[in-house]
Simulated scan of single mutants.
Amino acid sequence: MFFKTLGLLFWSTLFSYSVSAAYTPEQVKAVYLFRIANFIYWKHEPQMKSVEFCLPDSPEVKKILQSIVTNKTVRHLPLHIADSDCDILFVTKQENLHYVEAAGANTVTIGDLEQFTRYGGVIELYNEDGRIKPKINLDNIGDYSVSSNLLRIAKIEGNK
């Protein structure tokens, strides 16, 4: 119960900061990527050796995320930045939506493009009133589940 409360406190605190406040949008997105990993449960998780983040088109977020995930774990799985075999894929450019289309069912696709979830992405980080918030399309979820704690704070699309 303590960890559930702590997780909800983190999310509500994150929402209370405006993008124009002390944090850059890239910093907020990197924190979201890290935090989201804690709320994803892969069906093949017992066989996983690590959680791999791929950020093919966002060098600034990638650099920040690298500093966050160094020596960190999610449920005893070390976190790494990778170029392939992605467990979490973050896409920021329209011309790279082919990565989303090619992603396997085990890959959580996250993007900050407008209408990202309509292009097949699972989680869109969108800006509302100067704050970055998650939108989740339930119909695009693959071979993993998303914690109700994350669903509770997200805008939900789809019917799954």
Rank of each mutant, 00 (worst) to 15 (best):
K49A: 10
Q47I: 14
T24C: 15
I40N: 09
K29V: 02
I36N: 05
K62S: 11
T70A: 15
V61A: 04
S50H: 14
Q66N: 11
C54Q: 08
F53T: 00
P46V: 07
V31Q: 02
I40W: 01
P46M: 01
H76M: 08
H44C: 13
E60V: 03
Y41G: 06
I40D: 00
T24L: 14
K43L: 06
A37W: 04
Q27G: 04
V74M: 04
W42L: 02
Q27H: 09
E52T: 14
W42A: 02
T70Y: 15
E52R: 03
P46F: 01
Q27I: 10
T24D: 14
N38M: 02
V31N: 04
K29G: 00
Y23C: 02
C54A: 11
L77K: 03
V61N: 05
V69H: 10
Y23R: 01
E45L: 06
V28W: 02
S50F: 14
Q66H: 12
R75F: 03
E60T: 02
V31F: 03
K29F: 00
L33W: 05
D57I: 07
Q27K: 06
S67M: 08
S50M: 13
Y32G: 02
F34V: 14
L55D: 00
H44G: 15
L55R: 08
S50D: 14
P56M: 11
P46C: 04
S50E: 14
Q47G: 11
T70V: 08
E45T: 12
V61K: 04
H76E: 09
I64C: 07
P25M: 06
V51Q: 10
R75Y: 08
I68P: 06
I40V: 09
L65Y: 10
P59N: 11
W42D: 01
A30K: 05
L33R: 11
K63C: 07
E60W: 02
K49V: 08
N38I: 01
P56N: 13
N38Q: 13
N38W: 08
Y41N: 12
I68D: 06
D57N: 12
K49Y: 10
C54P: 11
I64S: 05
K72G: 11
K49L: 11
R75E: 02
F34R: 15
Q66R: 12
S50A: 13
V74E: 05
P46L: 02
E26T: 04
T24V: 13
I68G: 03
Q47S: 12
S50L: 13
K62H: 11
R35M: 15
D57M: 08
I40Q: 08
Y23M: 06
K29N: 00
